[in-house]
Nucleic acid binder design. Structure first.
Lengths: 150, 150
DNA sequence: GACATATGGTTAGCTTACTAACCATTTGCC
DNA sequence: GGCAAATGGTTAGTAAGCTAACCATATGTC
């Protein structure tokens, strides 16, 4: 009575962040043979699909800041997954190219992604999966727009 | 044809991690007056509800590793939100106590949490919110259990 | 053409999260 | 009682994300 209903600290938001942490952990387990993390894998996948992206373009696709991409690319370059190449018309920009080392792996990695996704979504019907995705998409839209407001 | 349907890099998993990032960002915006982040706020909330938790107990409630709690508590202690006190019967353990500085704020912070949650869930009916929470809960259970199994 | 502004990237410094390795106690078993 | 194993915390090192501040080059306007 004195404490106002004391809302349980487990809210949708913290639940969501927990799930995000767990996803990262599971991915690490699955992908450890290649020594790649989920964000790294995602970057390679984008570059596999669209070679020659600039860092800005990659940042936009990954929906992270350009600083994050700089560091991500640093690590991927150091490990030999990709190269930074000069942009032919804009001397500020760098184009990203996968190395030969990366080519054979990207396909395999989709399988890893599928495994983790399979673990996560086990027991959910096709309808429920769609529903989850669509709800998350709406939440994402809400949060993306909310930045400017007031 | 040559590229196998090329699944779009936007999967439920990456969508989920994006939303998690956005939540963190929105929370930072809302809570910046107190210079507290979402995990810090969550820790204070737990301690407000259950004073005297040990770090291990807090780690369990937050569902993060004890290392993470060590660092989190380091920062919270340095900023004067809480104290580490000796455990009365276990000399290894430390009990966490909120300081006077923290007391008045914890209540306010629930409001902040509610604001962010409100932004995130805007436009979702009560039923949809429940559905989202229940789906996430199932995903979380899947991922928690998946660790052991091969 | 010159200067203000916008854009591409980097550096520095922060928080959160992790694993691995390590002390110091406590507990359990013989 | 004594020793092995479990538990509570910390330290070191890494990845991912951010903001703020900063170069260098492009672009746009006068």
């Amino acid at each position: 009575m004195s404490k106002t209903p004391a809302p349980p600290p487990v809210t949708v938001t913290s639940l969501l962040m927990e799930v995000s942490r767990l996803l990262r952990a599971r991915f690490r387990e699955q992908a450890q043979d290649w020594e790649l993390t989920q964000p790294q894998w995602l970057a390679l996948a984008h570059l596999n699909k669209t070679p020659g992206l600039t860092q800005s373009e990659l940042a936009e696709r990954l929906e992270v800041s350009k600083v994050t991409v700089t560091q991500l690319v640093d690590r991927l370059e150091k490990s030999g997954w990709l190269r930074r190449e000069a942009h032919e018309s804009d001397r500020r920009a760098t184009r990203l190219q996968l190395t030969d080392k990366a080519a054979p792996v990207t396909a395999e990695l989709w399988r890893v992604g599928a495994v983790v996704r399979g673990q996560a979504l086990a027991g959910l019907s096709a309808g429920e999966r769609e529903q989850l995705e669509s709800l998350l998409q709406r939440v994402k839209t809400n949060l993306s727009g909310a930045a400017a407001k007031e």
